[in-house]
Measured scan of single mutants.
Amino acid sequence: RDEDEKEKIKEALKRGNEDKAKEIAKRANVSPEEYERLRKEAE
């Protein structure tokens, strides 16, 4: 379940949809550090 959320965040970031990614991260309680890591992976 947690991994699904992280995949959704990465997908949103790949599409350049940072607002959606942040919204998912907030809902999934993803830490800022984890969010940054996902953002780097998505580049």
Results as ranks from 00 to 15, higher is better:
1 R>V: 14
1 R>G: 14
1 R>Y: 14
2 D>I: 13
2 D>H: 13
2 D>K: 09
2 D>C: 07
2 D>N: 13
2 D>F: 14
3 E>L: 08
3 E>M: 09
4 D>P: 08
4 D>M: 11
4 D>A: 11
4 D>E: 12
4 D>V: 11
4 D>K: 11
4 D>T: 12
4 D>Q: 12
5 E>N: 10
5 E>K: 07
5 E>G: 06
5 E>W: 15
6 K>L: 15
6 K>C: 04
6 K>P: 04
6 K>G: 09
6 K>M: 14
7 E>T: 13
7 E>L: 13
7 E>F: 13
7 E>P: 04
8 K>Y: 06
8 K>L: 14
8 K>E: 10
8 K>I: 06
8 K>M: 14
8 K>Q: 14
8 K>F: 06
8 K>A: 15
9 I>K: 00
9 I>S: 01
9 I>T: 01
9 I>Q: 00
9 I>G: 01
9 I>L: 07
9 I>C: 02
9 I>H: 01
10 K>N: 02
10 K>R: 09
10 K>H: 02
10 K>C: 05
10 K>F: 06
10 K>Q: 03
10 K>P: 00
10 K>V: 08
10 K>I: 10
11 E>C: 05
11 E>I: 09
11 E>P: 00
11 E>L: 09
11 E>R: 08
11 E>A: 10
12 A>L: 12
12 A>G: 01
12 A>P: 00
12 A>T: 03
12 A>K: 02
12 A>S: 05
12 A>N: 05
12 A>V: 03
12 A>I: 03
12 A>Y: 13
12 A>C: 04
12 A>F: 12
13 L>F: 13
13 L>Q: 01
13 L>W: 03
13 L>H: 02
13 L>P: 00
13 L>S: 00
13 L>C: 02
13 L>T: 01
14 K>Q: 07
14 K>H: 07
14 K>L: 10
14 K>E: 04
14 K>T: 05
14 K>P: 00
14 K>N: 05
14 K>D: 02
15 R>E: 15
15 R>K: 12
15 R>M: 15
15 R>Y: 12
15 R>G: 10
15 R>H: 14
16 G>F: 04
16 G>P: 01
16 G>C: 05
16 G>V: 02
16 G>W: 03
16 G>A: 03
17 N>K: 07
17 N>M: 11
17 N>P: 02
18 E>L: 10
18 E>W: 11
18 E>D: 08
18 E>N: 07
18 E>Q: 08
18 E>C: 08
18 E>F: 14
18 E>R: 07
18 E>M: 09
18 E>S: 09
19 D>I: 12
19 D>Q: 14
19 D>S: 13
19 D>G: 11
19 D>T: 13
19 D>K: 14
19 D>M: 12
20 K>L: 15
20 K>S: 09
20 K>M: 15
20 K>N: 07
20 K>H: 11
20 K>W: 13
20 K>I: 14
21 A>G: 02
21 A>E: 01
21 A>R: 00
21 A>F: 01
21 A>N: 01
21 A>S: 02
21 A>H: 00
22 K>M: 12
22 K>D: 04
22 K>R: 14
22 K>F: 07
22 K>W: 12
22 K>S: 06
22 K>Q: 12
23 E>R: 06
23 E>F: 05
23 E>Q: 08
23 E>C: 05
23 E>T: 05
23 E>V: 05
24 I>D: 03
24 I>F: 05
24 I>W: 04
24 I>L: 12
24 I>Q: 03
24 I>H: 04
25 A>E: 02
25 A>N: 01
25 A>L: 02
25 A>S: 04
25 A>T: 02
25 A>M: 04
26 K>H: 11
26 K>S: 09
26 K>F: 10
26 K>P: 00
27 R>K: 14
27 R>F: 10
27 R>G: 09
27 R>D: 09
28 A>S: 08
28 A>D: 04
28 A>V: 08
28 A>Q: 08
28 A>I: 12
28 A>M: 10
28 A>C: 07
28 A>G: 08
28 A>K: 04
28 A>P: 02
28 A>W: 10
29 N>C: 04
29 N>W: 03
29 N>A: 06
29 N>H: 09
29 N>T: 03
30 V>H: 01
30 V>W: 04
30 V>N: 01
30 V>P: 00
30 V>L: 13
30 V>S: 01
31 S>R: 05
31 S>L: 07
31 S>E: 06
31 S>M: 06
31 S>G: 12
31 S>F: 03
31 S>T: 13
31 S>C: 04
32 P>N: 10
32 P>R: 10
32 P>F: 11
32 P>G: 08
32 P>V: 11
32 P>T: 10
33 E>Y: 06
33 E>H: 07
33 E>M: 08
34 E>P: 00
34 E>M: 05
34 E>L: 05
34 E>S: 03
34 E>F: 02
35 Y>N: 00
35 Y>I: 04
35 Y>Q: 02
35 Y>H: 01
35 Y>G: 00
35 Y>K: 00
35 Y>V: 05
35 Y>A: 01
36 E>Y: 04
36 E>F: 04
36 E>S: 04
36 E>G: 03
36 E>H: 05
36 E>N: 07
37 R>F: 08
37 R>T: 09
37 R>W: 08
37 R>L: 10
37 R>E: 10
38 L>G: 00
38 L>N: 00
38 L>V: 03
38 L>F: 04
38 L>S: 00
39 R>A: 09
39 R>M: 08
39 R>K: 14
39 R>W: 07
39 R>Y: 06
39 R>P: 01
40 K>R: 14
40 K>Y: 12
40 K>E: 13
40 K>Q: 15
40 K>T: 11
40 K>A: 14
41 E>M: 07
41 E>Q: 09
41 E>C: 04
42 A>S: 07
42 A>F: 07
42 A>Q: 05
42 A>P: 01
42 A>H: 04
42 A>T: 07
42 A>W: 06
43 E>S: 09
43 E>I: 14
43 E>L: 15
43 E>N: 10
43 E>W: 13
43 E>G: 08
43 E>T: 10
